[in-house]
Amino acid sequence: MEAELEAELQKLQAEVTDLEKQLQDQRRVMDFDFRGNLLHTLGVVCSQSAVPMERQMLALRLQEEVDELEEDLKRQTQMNGIRVVSCRRRREEESLEKKAVAERAGGSISAQRVCVSGVCSELSFQVEFKLSELKFGSRTKQTLSDLNIVMEESDLQSFSSFLSRVEESQDLLLFFRTLRTFCERCDERRRTFAHLQTEHPSIVSLPEGQRSEVMTLSLPQLPGCVLLVHWSVQVNKEGGVKSSVELLPKIPENALQLFQSSPVAGAAEAFHSLQRILGVEGALETVVMAMSHDQ
């Protein structure tokens, strides 16, 4: 019986120790994140000895600052199209070697692990990295390392080599810039396909929905004859984003035998010429309109 009680007591002591450690980590994160007026305000509001009137005024001021930050975040989201869903931070100990180097240089070093989840257009992402802060008096230098990026969508094959390069170079800005451009190109494709399908539902269909890379054009009076429009958005290792739109005719073999020469010869090149003159949307609109006149 005594052995069981002793084991239970040790278990409770271990839990208490773990909770105390978590509390210390949270306090360190707050010390790391909150500075200046914000830290002072939180200290006064949480203080038991603060004058009620002073506490109320500072609480109102704190609320104003929070509202301003929320408005700024909203503006940033509208400008860059990236919405942050969550941001988690936890204190992380630097190596003894780095601490010793910083101390010998007359400074100090601290670090935290940051995990940011967000959405750009309809693409979800999660970015995790280590943020180190080196202080020399009033000067502060921050460095980013251990970058890891996860894209939840499994069909983004063009992103794989690019993400590997970003993680290797620790270039987080390049990732967000490329992600935004990629999403803009995909949104352009989605809007164009949706518009054409809405205007010409009897001709245009999207086999995989509005986010599909493929749009099919067909006429009821010509069963089996289909024009496939393949609109891909590719990302290279350097972060360059390129759209490619191809027109691929699909005609049954028995129908091709009715013509002395191939009726689809040069169709792809003719479509490319239309793109150079009218742009992608104009070229697609022209092809669809030409088919609608044959109905």
Rank of each mutant, 00 (worst) to 15 (best):
E128R: 15
L163C: 12
F193Q: 03
L196S: 07
F159A: 15
E97D: 14
S158L: 06
Q48I: 08
E65C: 00
S121T: 11
Q157L: 13
G118V: 13
P220M: 01
G240R: 05
V280F: 00
K250N: 03
D294S: 06
L227W: 03
E71I: 10
D18S: 11
Q210C: 13
S124P: 01
S243I: 03
E122P: 00
V229E: 03
G106M: 04
C46F: 15
F32M: 13
G224I: 04
S132V: 14
E153H: 14
E208R: 11
G239K: 07
R35V: 07
S86L: 04
Q126T: 15
E188H: 05
E122N: 15
S49Q: 15
K130N: 02
Q197S: 01
S110Q: 14
H195T: 06
E122F: 15
L173F: 02
E8A: 12
E93Q: 12
N37Y: 00
S158K: 10
Q112Y: 03
T77P: 01
R83K: 06
T286R: 09
A267M: 08
Q234V: 06
S110C: 05
I82R: 05
D18W: 13
E4V: 06
L58D: 05
L147S: 10
C225V: 10
Q63P: 00
R113S: 11
P223Y: 03
S202Y: 01
E64N: 08
E153T: 05
F159C: 10
K135T: 07
E238S: 08
S262A: 07
L5Q: 13
L274V: 01
E153D: 15
D67K: 09
S273Y: 05
E168F: 11
C120G: 15
L69S: 11
L278I: 12
L19R: 13
R27C: 08
A50L: 08
P263C: 01
L222G: 08
C186S: 09
T178W: 06
R89N: 10
G106C: 11
H200K: 08
E152V: 09
K11E: 04
K242M: 00
E103R: 15
F129E: 12
E199L: 13
L222D: 07
S49W: 10
W231V: 01
F34H: 07
